[in-house]
Computed example of a mutant assay.
Amino acid sequence: MGVDAETSKAQLRARIRSERAARAATAPESRGVEAEPAVAESAWALVESLWPDLDLNGRSMLAYAALAGEPDMDPVVDRFLAHGGTVYLPVVTTVGQPLMFGAVTESMATLEPRGRWGIREPSPALSAVDLLAEVAPDIMFVPALGFGPEGARLGNGGGFYDRTFGPQGEVPMEREDRMGWVFGVCFSTELGLPGLAVEAWDLQITSAVTDHGVHSFD
């Protein structure tokens, strides 16, 4: 008997979470995020390539607050803010609903864990529709447990990014006229996950930032 798609995804999630837990256990930071800032360095190098003068006044970013074991984007967020940019983070308000978004007004270290999953979040202020209409982020970093060979994203299973930015979501990311540069974020060992195919509702991403730089999917 073959393994169905959801079972396969569950197995992949379990494997990657175990690997990330082992990584987090050896990390020096108290939150247990990645032991080396290689992914953040790749992401910041990308920012520098887009805006070489680093005058980020009027520029905006959508990022995320890392959970234990996830690639840590805190240094990227703090540097973007220090250079005059504006940063928004996703906020989970209701299970089964699209994400909301809030601005980071100080450093990432000032945010406290909150909600069901203990994610560090600002106060929710904007829906995805409002985020695109009022902010229109210039660059977006989307977390993932990994990606299939063609860019199928493996999320944590809550479906929040699919409901928000997927083809059937609140603001489909495929509408290129409404989106800035969009990059997934994962470790290089989490690329090319076997048996991961894009479903009709799945958020699909064309490039990912890893500890080995930017990877583009075929």
Rank of each mutant, 00 (worst) to 15 (best):
V33G: 07
S42V: 01
E70V: 07
H83R: 15
A68D: 05
P75S: 00
E29W: 13
W51V: 15
A35P: 03
D55H: 10
A45V: 03
A63D: 01
G32W: 07
A25F: 08
A63P: 02
G85S: 05
V87L: 04
E36T: 15
Y64L: 09
L81E: 00
R79A: 11
P28C: 10
G84S: 02
L67N: 05
G32N: 11
L67G: 04
E34R: 12
R20P: 13
A45Q: 14
P75N: 00
A45N: 15
D72P: 07
V47Y: 04
V39D: 05
V47F: 00
A40C: 07
A27E: 09
L50E: 09
A21M: 12
L50H: 11
R59Q: 08
D78L: 06
V39K: 09
E19Q: 15
A27C: 09
S18C: 12
V76H: 02
L56I: 10
D72Y: 01
E70R: 09
A25T: 11
W51T: 12
A63W: 01
W51G: 03
R23A: 15
V76W: 03
F80W: 11
R31T: 13
D53W: 00
S49Y: 02
A40G: 02
L81F: 01
T26F: 09
M61R: 08
E36I: 10
Y64V: 10
W51L: 02
A25S: 15
T26M: 14
E36V: 13
L62K: 06
V77A: 13
A24Y: 09
A66F: 02
E36W: 12
A82I: 06
E34Q: 14
E19K: 15
G69V: 00
S49C: 03
A27K: 06
R20V: 11
P28T: 13
S60F: 06
D72R: 08
R23C: 13
A25K: 14
G69A: 02
A38G: 05
A45E: 12
G32S: 10
G58N: 05
D74W: 03
S18M: 11
R79N: 01
G84Y: 05
E34D: 15
R79Y: 08
F80C: 01
A45D: 11
V33I: 13
S42Y: 01
P52A: 02
V47K: 01
D55G: 08
D78M: 05
S42D: 03
D74Y: 02
A22Q: 15
A68P: 10
S49V: 04
A66R: 01
A68K: 14
P37M: 10
Y64D: 09
W44E: 03
G32M: 10
L54F: 00
G58I: 11
L62D: 06
W44R: 11
E70H: 01
L81G: 04
D74G: 07
W44A: 08
T86F: 02
A68L: 01
D53Q: 13
A68T: 14
H83M: 06
P28H: 09
V76G: 05
E34P: 06
L50W: 07
V77I: 15
T86W: 05
A27F: 08
A45T: 11
W51R: 11
G58M: 08
E29C: 14
L67P: 03
A22N: 11
L56Y: 00
E41N: 14
L56F: 05
A38M: 12
E29Q: 14
S49T: 11
N57A: 14
E19A: 15
S18A: 14
V76Q: 04
W51D: 07
E19F: 12
A68G: 00
E41Y: 03
Y64M: 09
